[in-house]
Amino acid sequence: MGSVTSIASLGRNGLYDWVVQRISAVVIAAYFLFLVFFLVMNPGLTYEQWVALFSSNWMQVFSTISLLMLLAHVWIGVWGVLTDYMTPRLMGSKANSMRLVVELVVFAVVLIVAVVGLSIFWSL
């Protein structure tokens, strides 16, 4: 296949990124809509109910999948934005090396959020 491959893209190529972006969008939408629905339906929410929700096994799995999907979505999304604007045409000849630095920072934040998030979900 002749599509563009980049070591900095998440998947093997742009098509793979495109598919991950779509699947992750649907999962994140489901997760957030579920939480909004839960909060709207439980106006007098108690701590016990809240912990019971997040410590149930299906919710731990749902939260984990959603978080990983969200981070993939964010990485692909931000990578796309950076490659659009941090270019030599817009930012001069140092743009490519500057973009690499910013990408590394974003990637580090993504990893940290993954660790922090998973420890929240699985320490309950």
């Binding site: 701590y47 809240w50 912990v51 997040f54 969200l70 964010v74 999304g77 931000v78 934005v81 959020v113 922090v116 998030g117 929240i120 309950l124």
Partner: peptide
């Protein structure tokens, strides 16, 4: 695109609130 970037910041704040809300009854 802009809302996508704003949501990146939102996620960090929401995760902090979630963590705190699950820590103890008092934090909740």
């Amino acid at each position: 695109r802009i809302t996508g970037l704003v949501l990146c910041a939102a996620v960090l704040v929401l995760l902090w609130f979630l963590d705190k809300s699950l820590t103890s009854e008092a934090d909740f």
